[in-house]
Amino acid sequence: MHSDRAPLMLKVAAVAGLAFLHLPILLIFLYAFTTEERTYQFPPPGLTLKWFGVAWERPDIWPPLYLSLKVAAISTALALVLGTLAAAAMARARFFGRDSISLLVILPIALPGIITGMSLRSAFAIADIPFSTLTIVLGHATFCVVIVYNNAVARFRRLGGSMLEASADLGANGFQTFRFVILPNLGSALLAGGMLAFALSFDEVIVTTFTAGQQSTLPIWMLNELVRPRQRPVTNVVAIVVFAATFVPILIAYTLTRGGADTAGGGK
């Protein structure tokens, strides 16, 4: 019989592969405590907690952090509205051009970020639009729509039509059905999609560098520090914050949608 136990080699390779995916991140944490600020010396010559205080005092970190939070919040809100609308339309009907529309929704995430970024940059150049928070949001909301859409469309499909028909048969109008039937069922999927969209926007750097002009989001701040490092461990402290800000939402999103075929994040 073809055994149900994995061959040892396969098991070792699989676990080693997972370790390869996770161990590098741990170094970020380690280096946040090093006493060496000029090189990436390993092992660290000594350990200290002072960089957390130093990072807190650095005035150049706060404005990018606020900008990132603001952009992520606005983009997520926009994406929630647009993504849900698109999902509602796609889930309820088959119509001419449906496949083209689903392709259009996926496209911003299927094409490399640099194309989205350079496209927006070209459009701003042609239309003479100056860089602002709005130009960053334009880019971010565009790819955040996909994330919300993916989560919402899967839930709509599971919801099916019979519940909506039952609601209508019991005398509810469309708005009451939306309020009392659709929204409660859709809630956790939207929350998950919103979390993921927020994480994606908060962390985005490739499109942002094309749409930000002189403004600095937290990832752009980090990128500058990577190219021209000053106090290297401070960058690690910020990296830990960024890591947490993306890690926590994805864990919550996973918990919210666990067990379904629509588990969040299957396609980034």
Binding site: H22, P24, I25, L27, D203, V205, A239, F243, F247, I250
Partner: peptide
Amino acid sequence: LPLWSSYLVKVYA
């Protein structure tokens, strides 16, 4: 988790 965790943090690591 590695798929979704911060791109820049991964590169930095």
